[in-house]
Nucleic acid binder design. Structure first.
Lengths: 147, 147
DNA sequence: TTGAAAAAATTACTCTCGGTTGTATTTTTC
DNA sequence: GAAAAATACAACCGAGAGTAATTTTTTCAA
């Protein structure tokens, strides 16, 4: 008999739901009613036959009085073993850094859109240090008010 | 025109996914590929047209380097350990915006630390000039979210 | 022990919506 | 300003989310 389970994660989540429910001495009927579904459907969730949608998951967490994260094995999260592409990782890392945060805050404080654009253009040209590629430094064609 | 969205929670979750994705400077294609689905399907998730199943949600959280709880509106303190959410929504949203991402990328491309510092200083003075018109450059202390 | 009532499991069925492909539109880049 | 990348929009299809019915297991008082 092939286990028709969507996948192991869903089975695990369902198991956690059942665990928490029993911990509260709740019956399937009771929980399913407060979820607005049949108890048979709840059974599928707990067995891992069907996967639980995000909104429903939140509702379950609400009823059972636990954070959503309770249903997941979050251990792998804080291991910081994020597999991100090189560039993405660089972006994320910078944003999280003191320097990145400072830059963002400083930039947000600039209200004038024109100054913002010019500063961005400056940063760009400083980055591609080799060649500015355009003689005419009119770094902005005055495009119409976009945004 | 009634929004075809399953419900508000799913829309919110999708929004959070998009926010985090953009924060990392990731494209829909890139993320969807690492999820093993089409980018169109990812669009549905982000728009809240389809709800995200538990297992997929965990996978997304994994790829995006956040705990699953990040996608839900429950108590923000869970994500306290996460670098970005320590900041205000304003900052987060800016970083995720087109302008913010462009700025970040441009800045990253600048290798010389001195130029970086000077550019940051410039940004600060440009911002504070409107708000404070101050004399002494105490920009060291400019971390009030709302001036 | 028994037997009835609650809780849980299993099966059969329907129709929504999760997921795909295909095309159009916008945005970025050179 | 065109080519390419990123995103949006639409139509279609089948797995699986959800229901209903029946069966098995558990519980517990008489």
């Amino acid at each position: 008999m092939k286990a028709k389970t969507p996948n192991a994660i869903d089975a695990y989540v369902g198991e956690r739901v059942r665990l928490r429910r029993k911990l509260l001495g709740m019956s399937q009927v009771s929980l399913s009613e407060s979820l607005g579904i049949t108890f048979q459907q709840l059974q599928k969730y707990e067995k891992g036959v069907n996967r639980i949608g995000a909104s429903r998951l939140q509702r379950i967490a609400e009823v059972l009085g636990v954070p959503v994260g309770f249903f997941f094995d979050e251990d792998r999260q804080h291991t910081a073993g994020l597999r991100l592409s090189a560039e993405t990782d660089e972006v994320a890392h910078f944003i999280a850094s003191k320097e990145g945060l400072a830059l963002t805050r400083a930039f947000i404080a600039i209200e004038d859109p024109n100054i913002r654009r010019k500063l961005l253009a400056l940063a760009r040209s400083l980055g591609s240090s080799q060649a500015v590629t355009d003689e005419h430094e009119g770094w902005e064609r005055a495009d119409e008010t976009r945004g």
